[in-house]
Nucleic acid binder design. Structure first.
Lengths: 175, 175
DNA sequence: GAGTTATGTCAGTGTTATTGACATATTTCA
DNA sequence: TGAAATATGTCAATAACACTGACATAACTC
């Protein structure tokens, strides 16, 4: 018997493990889907993808980042990183400098163009976050309700009705 | 001049647009990275990937979902869906039934094996969510602080120190 | 019966990722 | 000083996941 089956049987341990969080898990999917959608549209105009975005973002925010640090943050292989990094360096969005204390290291920095693009990308995402935070909060509820409210607010406004309609199928059948 | 540049100059509009949310944006990356990491490890044992997970999840939660509905939820093409759906049907995790009112439709349902796997996957994610919600909240703070606290709680505990250390590089240079 | 809708499928392509192996420069340390 | 470890770069092959465009079939609508 799986743990989920146990939860269906209504054990306290199982409920504590988070049956109530199932909606939140789904909202995280929808929130992230729309969250990355904004920058994707901008990046496409430059011939870049999501991988380029991640590299650009972290280099912009943490100038002087080394290759090893970036690999640890992104959890990808050297080969994967190198592909996108080559693009960004070749098109002058990122520059490398040899490390001073350790000359094996390549310290990464954004060029002015890189900083500008990174700024545009974080702007569009920050706007979405700001809007989500400005949404009316259900008030004194559980942390769960607050988290769900925030994630729902991250969803593209035009899509919220569809998500609400979909999730209502399930809420009805449970409550 | 980009909007980000404007924000650097300290305009109110720009600050309202979410300079303060930059940390949150980054935390969303780390939270999602670890959030999908749990199921990925389980799925690998079945030879499945993230795409299989998404299909299995939504079919499990919304039995009788049609192909068109699934395409709209996942925002992928028919061809992409069909590849993973074929795997899941071929290995008996999902079954199709012809629609009753509209016989063109293929209604999707989980088999017992599909429900069990979907349950195991949501369990491991629900545990992470439950842990994040159980984390001590900074209390009466802004919605921003609460959201950041939740997302930080979603990060794998062993990795939190590294994330905190990284982000401290920036917080220091701003404050 | 004509047009639309829901689904399936073929062929080709692109992005992002992987593993494994090997090369080079530099630093560390015994 | 010389050996080992570290940081990075690169080659080749592969896989997962996505795309576009085109076409086919069955079933519904009018």
């Amino acid at each position: 018997m799986t743990s989920r089956a146990t939860r269906a049987a209504g054990s306290d341990e199982a409920i504590a493990a988070g049956s109530a969080g199932d909606d939140l898990i789904e909202l995280l999917f929808f929130a992230y889907r729309d969250f990355v959608g904004d920058p994707d549209r901008i990046l496409a105009q430059y011939g870049f993808g999501r991988a380029h975005h991640r590299v650009l973002h972290f280099v912009d925010r943490y100038p002087g980042l080394t290759i090893a640090e970036l690999l640890d943050i992104l959890r990808i292989t050297k080969q994967s990183l190198n592909r996108v990094l080559k693009d960004l360096i070749g098109q002058d969005y990122i520059a490398q400098k040899t490390g001073t204390s350790d000359r094996r290291q390549r310290l990464l920095f954004c060029t002015p163009a890189g900083t500008a693009l990174a700024g545009d990308l974080i702007d569009v995402q920050a706007r979405r976050v700001a809007r989500a935070l400005a949404e009316p909060d259900p008030g004194v509820g559980t942390g769960l309700a607050t988290a769900e409210s925030f994630l729902f607010g991250m969803i593209e406004p035009d899509e919220r009705a569809a998500v609400r309609r979909l999730m209502a199928r399930r809420i009805r059948s449970v409550a």
